[in-house]
């Protein structure tokens, strides 16, 4: 028994019939083909599937697609602005904050939520904010630096503006 949902993803409006048990992450990956959001676990611990729902970081494996009805969703594919990388995307590249890349989209989305709430976080605050996202490659060292890079860049941009 399908339910119709209306959801805006990365600025584009969609309407789809979905099975009520479809997870939001499956909807994004299987229906919309947005495979940048990854599935790393089945217990909502790894954070690889983190996206923004109405501006807040959400693990999209913990949410049903039907719960996103009427929401505004942003995934990693929507982070760059007309080809200009988001400061977090740039930061992860500049500071070598990724290796295999599998956790990276989730890391970037969680970090986006953090910088929205706390534009100038300390190392400790960054580490605490990212404790729901596993990375097995980097030891987190350069991820912290990547977020710091982005925080600095955003703050400089705002000063200019």
């Amino acid at each position: 028994m399908a339910t119709t949902i209306q959801v805006t993803v990365n600025g584009k409006a969609y309407s789809h019939d979905v099975d009520p048990r479809t997870l939001l992450v499956q909807y994004l990956r299987d229906v919309l083909g947005l495979t940048g959001t990854h599935v790393g676990c089945d217990t909502s611990n790894c954070g690889a599937c983190t996206i923004l729902v109405d501006g807040k970081a959400v693990k999209s494996c913990t949410m049903l697609a039907v719960q996103a009805d009427g929401s505004e969703v942003k995934t990693i594919e929507g982070m760059a602005d007309n080809g200009t990388l988001h400061p977090l995307q740039e930061g992860f590249r500049e500071e070598h904050g990724l290796q295999c890349g599998f956790c990276t989209p989730g890391m970037i989305m969680t970090s986006a939520d953090l910088l929205e709430r706390n534009p100038n976080p300390t190392e400790h605050e960054i580490r605490e904010a990212l404790e729901g996202n596993f990375c097995r490659c980097t030891g987190y060292h350069n991820i912290v630096k990547s977020v710091q890079y982005a925080a600095k860049k955003i703050s400089n941009q705002e000063k200019v503006a």
Partner: peptide, 19 residues
């Protein structure tokens, strides 16, 4: 040198088997 492969990973364009 900054990594060549990063661009696809930071934009969600990596291609993993399950994709």
């Amino acid at each position: 040198v900054k990594r060549v492969e990063d661009k696809r990973f930071i934009t969600g364009k990596g291609r993993y088997t399950d994709d």
